[in-house]
Each structure stands twice: as C-alpha cells, then as structure tokens.
C-alpha cells in the first residue's frame, strides 16, 4: 500500500526563487489497485513519484510505502518497490542477464534464487535469445522488457511507473500496459503517472489530478467525470484544472 500524507517538495532556483514542485499532496493506493497520477508536463508527477521512491527527500510531510516511512526508512522502502520510467535507462555495456542479476544482487537476493528468477523472467518476457546481448544493441521494445525484468527481479509488492510509455511505439506501449495490468492482477500496489488521458482512463482504478504541485481531485474515473458533469475524462480534467484558475 502507498499512503502519501501532505507531501511537500520545494526547490531553489536562482532565477525563479523557491519552487513548490509538490504542494501538500495526500492520497492512498491499495494493493490490487492501479492509481493514476494525471497532470500536464511540470505538474509535479515525476517529483511525487521520486519522493515515494525515496530518490528525493520531502521538504515536509511524509508517506508510507509497503508499511515503511519514506523519510525514516528509505532503504526498506526501496527494497519493496519496482521503479520504472522512460528516464530509467539501462547500462548499455552490460548484457540483459547481467543487468537483471545486478539489480537482484543490489536487492540482497540469494544467488540461487536470483539465477532461478532471472531465467524464469527472461523466458516469461521472451528475452532468452537476447539474454547475452549487450543492452545498447537491443531494440527499444526489448530494452523495455529488460527494464521490466529488472524491476520485477526481487518481486516487489509496490510498483511505481513514471510515464512508462512515453516515446514508445504502439506495440511496446501495449506490452507495458499489459504488464501493468498483470501487476494489479497479482495484487501489487501500482502507482502510475501519465499525461495521456486515454491510457489513464483504460488502466486506472483511481485517478488523482495533479496541477502545479497540488492534487486538485481524486477518485475513480467515472466519479471524476460525473463530478465535472462531462462524459470524457479529458473534459473533466480541463474543467477541474480551469476551475482552480
């Protein structure tokens, strides 16, 4: 489970002064559920996910991830999450298998179990043929599969996806969304961010609309549309954001 509690993150910028990238964000995401953070570019989605993945430290507020506090137990949190985004690239000079094993070892996995799970994941994701090829020689789709394998190697209960389909072709994007659904089916807690309305509507059980660092509204897609009095999620998003302005 993920429970964000009044998360705030500010950055200092020489020209613009203090920037509140995340401004008092609170929400909950349960196991077996996909929670989508929806927002335009610069809304604070990536920063929120980085706070939950403990890559960044919150300025104030806190969050519980899989029962651990992001500020006081960051190591425990990271051991229980799988973090995937278009920004999380692979080590080009390592092979697919070496990459998967590397992350397994960093997660403290037993060597025997690691080898078993790496083999199983490579077979599951149809990567066995490419297992010993360097990552920089793989196609974009294959690279995404290796990224999925490395996030799953330690079988984390919480998955965090930051715009995972950004820049991917249709087939690769479909593979990712299928994988996200499978995570939900296996009762994992799934947090997902995107600015693509259709993708969010298809995938998410609950949606949080983020704008200028603030969570403006949240709930199931149907409820958000009903609240805005429109039939389309994009229209609902625009109404909610314009309502603030």
């Amino acid at each position: 489970m993920i429970a964000a509690d009044r998360l705030v993150k500010t950055f200092r910028d020489r020209k613009r002064g203090e920037i509140r990238a995340v401004d008092g964000v609170s929400f909950q995401c349960q196991p077996g559920q996909i929670y989508g953070l929806l927002g335009a570019n610069g809304a604070g989605k990536t920063t929120t996910l980085r706070l939950l993945a403990t890559i960044l430290q919150p300025t104030s507020g806190t969050a519980q991830v899989a029962g651990f506090d992001v500020t006081t137990q960051p190591g425990e949190v990271r051991a229980r999450i799988g973090f995937l985004s278009t920004a999380t690239a692979l080590y080009g000079r390592l092979t697919a298998r070496e990459t998967i094993e590397y992350f397994g070892r960093l997660n403290g996995m037993d060597e025997e179990l690691l080898q078993q799970r790496a083999t199983a994941l490579l077979e599951l994701l149809e990567l066995s043929q490419a297992a010993h090829g360097r990552c920089d020689k793989l196609s974009t789709g294959m690279k995404q599969k290796v990224s999925i394998a490395r996030t799953l190697i330690h079988d984390p209960p919480v998955m965090i996806f930051d715009e995972p389909t950004l820049g991917l072709d249709v087939m690769s994007a479909r593979a990712i969304t299928r994988f996200i659904r499978e995570c939900r089916d296996r009762q994992k807690t799934v947090l997902f961010s995107s600015h693509v309305m259709s993708e969010v509507e298809k995938l998410c059980d609950r949606i949080g609309i983020l704008h200028q660092g603030k969570l403006l509204a949240e709930g199931p897609p149907a409820e958000l549309k009903a609240r805005a009095g429109v039939a389309d999620l994009e229209d609902a998003f625009v109404r909610i954001v314009e309502g603030l302005q």
Binding site: I55, A79, G92, F103, L106, N107
Partner: peptide, 11 residues
C-alpha cells in the same frame, strides 16, 4: 544516459 535514477531507486 539516464541510468542514475535507475540505481538510486534500488536499495
């Protein structure tokens, strides 16, 4: 290359 975020999200 963008691999720094990958490693920072590990334990």
């Amino acid at each position: 290359r963008g691999t720094i975020e990958t490693i920072l999200a590990s334990p």
